[in-house]
């Protein structure tokens, strides 16, 4: 079976694919041990498995791994700098946006991609971005607050 190359959180890996329908999420979780990428639905509807592929948020449960050949990937494990949390991670904690935490990694990565591209994203853009994610615990109030807080902190950083 084919092999692909991925650069994940700065490290390059060559990976054998078990079959040609393997999804990126399976590679990250099972081959690379990056289990911070969560699979909540497997059909692209909940956003839990969101990672950045060449800087773009993608649901890794639907993306065929072979289509990501050669890509640079950022997962939740690559967000903090060692033991120093990224300001977005801090903002999620401060805003009380984390309950069970299953939706959290995907949300943090999506927030990062939005704010990197649009540091002054308006509230409408934030809501638009959050539409891609389901959270059953928080009722979204604190998540919205966390993204706004992230925007503030990344601007002042």
């Amino acid at each position: 079976m084919a092999a692909i190359t991925l650069k994940v959180n700065g490290t390059t890996h060559t990976i054998e694919l078990e079959h040609d329908r393997v999804r990126l999420a399976e590679i990250l979780r099972e081959q690379l041990g990056l289990t911070g990428t969560k699979v909540g639905c497997g059909v692209g509807k909940c956003g839990s498995c969101t990672v950045l592929v060449n800087g773009e948020p993608v649901t890794s449960c639907t993306l065929l791994a072979r289509k990501a050949d050669g890509a640079e990937i950022l997962t939740i494990e690559g967000m903090a700098d060692g033991a120093v949390l990224h300001p977005i991670q801090e903002a999620f904690l401060d805003a009380g946006a984390v309950q069970c935490g299953f939706c959290t990694p995907g949300l943090i990565l999506r927030t990062y991609s939005l704010l990197r591209a649009h540091p002054t994203a308006d509230d409408g853009q934030i809501v638009e971005m959050l539409r891609h994610h389901l959270c059953r615990c928080t009722g979204y109030e604190a998540i919205l607050a966390a993204v706004k807080l992230s925007r503030e902190r990344m601007q002042s950083a």
Binding site: R29, L34, T35, G36, T37, K38, V39, T75, I76, E77, M79, A80, L85, Q89, F92, L93, D94, G96, V98, C100, G101, F102, T104, P105, I108
Partner: peptide
């Protein structure tokens, strides 16, 4: 602040599938 928060924002919190 939540005591389980850092585990959860970094992806280190273990769930059974992990």
């Amino acid at each position: 602040r939540r005591v389980d928060g850092a585990d959860k924002v970094t992806g280190q919190a273990m769930f059974v599938a992990d």
